[in-house]
């Protein structure tokens, strides 16, 4: 398999370059860490307050469950998130996309490698932050051993799904010169349908139904629910199925949009 061997060499080289790059911007990492810490605390604190005022629990969540939920949410968010759709407009407008196209390898590989390296590096920071949150907010888990094991494939599939989906979204920049508004609409959908504002179990029934049909729940909320031990064996299997179906749909969509987009692309500033 010379193809695969070559791909591995490309990834190894990309990893080394990315690590050097990330270490050059340590200051940005500190700021990023602050955001990482603040975000989960905001809704964690809001929902803990609600649980207390409702006699200790709301919708089956006690204060400790919210601590576990929002900390796991932070971890899953951190491992699945991508930023490429925020960069594509800039990439295309300034002509940085042209060199990527000239390489004898699909540009998505560049971003996968970039993504994995960043996560590998930052996970060393995420772990202490998570431990701090779990301890200081007194998190409680009701997870069984099989659910811990079930969490791993759910997380990996979520990473694949979110990357493919958001990379396809990024390709909109081939047609739209200003993607800010589109990206914001995407963020809002993500906020409510993937369980960022509140666990989906606390959302109105309509929102829950829509969330099951849309891909967002399968990118974030599903692995979190699995890790918290809130899903039975059947629900976990259905979840894997939904993730795989959405990955297949996203890959097909990516290929179609990519072919059409690349024909539209005319280099700027080359």
């Amino acid at each position: 398999m010379p193809e695969l061997g070559r791909l591995r060499a490309v990834y190894a080289a990309k990893f080394r370059a990315e690590i050097a790059l990330q270490f050059a911007y340590r200051g940005s990492l500190v700021i990023w860490l602050l955001g990482l810490l603040i975000q989960p605390i905001v809704y964690l604190v809001v929902w803990t307050t609600v649980a207390r005022s409702q006699g200790g629990a709301v919708g089956g969540f006690r204060a400790g469950d919210f601590a576990a939920y929002f900390t796991m949410l932070m971890i899953v968010n951190q491992l699945t998130f991508t930023w490429h759709f925020l960069e594509f407009e800039w990439r295309i407008r300034n002509g940085f996309f042209s060199p990527l196209l000239l390489r004898p390898i699909h540009p998505a590989h560049n971003d996968v490698a970039e993504n994995l390296t960043f996560k590998l590096l930052t996970f060393t920071v995420v772990v202490p932050v998570a431990v701090f949150l779990l301890i200081s907010f007194g998190a409680t888990f009701e997870t069984q051993a099989w659910q811990v094991a079930a969490f791993v494939p759910a997380l990996v599939l979520a990473m694949a799904l979110r990357f493919t989906f958001e990379w396809t979204l990024a390709l909109a920049a081939f047609w739209i010169t200003r993607t800010g508004a589109l990206n914001q609409a995407y963020f809002v959908a993500m906020l409510f349908f993937s369980g960022q504002v509140a666990p989906l179990a606390l959302m109105p029934a309509v929102v829950q139904a829509i969330a099951t049909l849309l891909p967002f729940r399968w990118m974030v909320s599903f692995p979190v629910e699995t890790a918290l031990g809130r899903l039975g064996p059947t629900e976990v299997l259905v979840g894997y199925g939904a993730q795989l179906a959405w990955i297949a749909a996203a890959v097909i969509l990516l290929r179609v949009v990519w072919r059409a987009g690349i024909r539209r692309y005319s280099a700027v500033g080359a």
């Binding site: 609600v50 906020l191 409510f192 504002v197």
Partner: peptide
């Protein structure tokens, strides 16, 4: 978004 988030919270409680 901000107002919807408040609506979600207050669907479960009367005061925060």
């Amino acid at each position: 978004t901000a107002l919807a988030a408040i609506a979600v919270v207050f669907s479960q409680t009367d005061e925060l």
